[in-house]
Design a binder for these strands. Structure first.
Lengths: 230, 230
DNA sequence: TAGTGGTCTAGACCACTCA
DNA sequence: GAGTGGTCTAGACCACTAT
């Protein structure tokens, strides 16, 4: 036991005990008070350490029952969702942007379901291409709630909806999905690839409270990968 | 200000102030002591709240400088990486498993780079199919360090390497990547889809400390999506 | 009902880094 | 050098739930 006693040391020690089976999967570990006594620290310090391990999926904690080593730990991978312009810049490329289409249209059924809208609701539809070193990087296909405050007067030929929303309607909740799709001829032309080629895509739906803000599909050019530490 | 004062209330109030531009992007917010005085709570409570918001990407905190509202907040999406058998069961389907191939082979170059190995290193190569209601769900193509403790005597026809590793070498570090690929004829036959079809795939490389444990590619059947709250 | 984790308090010291 | 966040302490009360 260390001179430098922090919650991180305790967390690391607990990880070690799990790894070497001193605390086997499914078993109950000593309670916070016992560990605080063993390590000679305050219970709050142990609490902080164990809370982090529970967030990481390594422990399962239940009031009155105790803390248990997870049987089949659920690992968590956290991906960072940047503004696309930054995503391009982070790869050392020069970002570009071109608005392809802007219109007010009835929302198609899949998007309607995603956002929980009534049939026939008119939404702002935007399609835009993001470029990296003048080559197609990603197609942004977005449905935007026309009631979004501040929306009037925004020129989406100059600022991508992606960036405007992040700056002006931040911190909404929603869902994100990753999947693969085959390029149809239109997509292939825009993204400079062969028709039928396998492309990586992301769909997001975001809300401010219960109000739908936007649904967007981002389809990336061939070979795109998203990575995260685990 | 509430009867129920918790760090979560403070976090919500801070989110609100950011959303309504009371604390605009890039601005410095009051320091912890001031907020504690305003809310009538201990500084530790404010600290807990602001720490969560910083982890969520909403604030940027710097010692001596203060806490700032992020200019372009980086949203984070956390995906749960379950054991494949559980992933299938969670969809209400009956999991199945079939080992296709097990051999000791020199590691191919891309995997070698991923794991940082010397050329010609022999690794255990496994290919297995995961089934959902007897239909192909996902192909597991894995390279496994033969020096992994406890590996001798494991029958990978009975237990998937995926599950054995989670149970026996948990809590390693590594990287994960998501991408799309086109089904080659072999894949198409195994996953019961058309050649050329766009498939979703995941690659993971995991380490115990500096020691490579495994590299795996999971290729999912057509239409697979992974989702997360955001 | 009792034991466990969840949280809050009031205070303290430290580490970092900006001016 | 000084102001800020990062953390620890010792104690307390509460919420939940297994028994």
């Amino acid at each position: 036991m260390p001179g430098t006693l922090t919650w991180q040391w305790i967390a690391a020690e607990a990880r070690r005990r799990v790894a070497v089976r001193q605390w086997p999967p499914g078993s109950r570990i000593p309670d916070e008070a016992q560990l605080a006594a063993e390590f000679g620290c305050a219970r709050a310090t142990v609490n902080r350490a164990l809370r982090e391990l529970a967030a990481a999926g390594l422990l399962v904690r239940r009031r009155r029952a105790g803390s248990f080593v997870a049987e089949l730990p659920v690992r968590k991978a956290t991906f960072e969702i940047q503004v696309i312009r930054q995503e391009i810049a982070a790869r050392g490329l020069r970002p570009g942007y071109r608005l392809l289409e802007a219109a007010s249209l009835p929302v198609p059924a899949p998007v309607r379901d995603l956002l929980g809208l009534a049939p026939g609701t008119p939404f702002r539809h935007l399609r835009a291409l993001h470029l990296a070193d003048d080559r197609p990087f990603c197609l942004e296909d977005r449905w935007l709630n026309p009631a979004t405050p501040g929306l009037e007067g925004v020129d989406f030929a100059a600022v991508s909806a992606n960036e405007w929303l992040v700056r002006n309607r931040p911190f909404s909740s929603g869902t994100i999905a990753f999947f693969a799709l085959a390029a149809d001829p239109g997509l292939a032309a825009l993204l400079d690839c062969r028709p039928g080629e396998a492309l990586f895509a992301v769909e997001r739906a975001t809300f401010a409270g219960a109000d739908p803000i936007t649904a967007v599909r981002l389809t990336y050019g061939p070979g795109h990968r998203v990575t995260a530490p685990i």
